[in-house]
Computed example of a mutant assay.
Amino acid sequence: MTAPDLSGQVALVAGASGGLGGPIAAALRAAGARVGGLDVRRPERETPEEVFIPCDIGDEGAVANAVAEARTVLGGEPSILVNSAAVVARRGLEDTASEWDDALRVNLTGAFYLIREVIGGMRRAGYGRIVQLASLVAETGGAGNVAAYAASKAGLVGLAKAAAAELAADGVTSNVVSPAWIDSGMFGVPGATPDQVPVRRMGTPEDVVSAVLYLVAPAAGFVTGQVVQVNGGLRFG
């Protein structure tokens, strides 16, 4: 797709060092935004135009400090927030213990902290775009051994919809991109093959980036509270 013009906007990407966060941050920069990448680890390959801000989004104080730093180094209030940060542990229900708390802390509570820190500036500006990355397992529960991840992502969808309802009158949209079978990091599925996907190929980070770019565009102001499925037809509707 043709990238929107995001010149002059400040964007935050949580999970910017991950398999999807990196390409998303790069695409936002290419569209003209000043981008701050939040993550617990530095990207493997840094470029001069990157602004990396260390942050554990599951830590309330760390999020407040990171957003404050972003305002200073990027020169303004964030008008775009994309959250691709997540943790996943493949454990059965009986074996899930601390993984449960960790998944909820990062995948759900962390998203809440991020939203809460940026919406003040968005409301004052009368404009904002918030996009959360969920997963098809939020609907299906997965194929087993991902209860904590599935529950946290289902909660994330509910949070995004609640934010959409609360912020709509302020010009702030809140949407979800829900990938499945993406050939990248945690979004890969062990044993998955292209012939199992209705479109007969695995998803790519670029497929996800295109959906994100659409939702953060100024022209997408009438789209909010939606879950955009990027899954090659694995589940319709």
Rank of each mutant, 00 (worst) to 15 (best):
G142D: 08
A103C: 15
G233N: 11
A134G: 12
V73T: 15
A165M: 12
V137K: 00
A27S: 13
P194A: 08
V172R: 06
G188V: 08
A211V: 08
G185F: 01
V82T: 06
V209H: 05
V197P: 12
N175V: 05
G155Q: 07
P4V: 08
A150E: 04
L213R: 09
A219F: 00
V209N: 07
V87A: 05
L28W: 04
Q132A: 13
T173P: 08
W100V: 09
V131H: 08
S178T: 13
A150C: 05
V51I: 12
P205A: 09
S84Y: 00
A143P: 00
V209M: 09
A162I: 03
P179D: 07
E49M: 01
L159D: 09
R235M: 15
E166P: 04
V189H: 05
A16E: 11
T224P: 03
F112R: 13
T109C: 01
V63Q: 08
A151P: 04
A89S: 14
R91V: 15
V137R: 00
L12G: 08
Q226I: 13
S210H: 13
G142M: 04
A16Y: 00
A220E: 07
D207P: 10
V40F: 00
A85T: 09
R105G: 11
V40H: 00
F187K: 00
V88A: 13
G185K: 06
M202T: 10
V227H: 03
T140C: 08
E99P: 10
V63E: 11
P54F: 04
L136E: 15
A97C: 10
D101S: 13
L133C: 05
F112T: 13
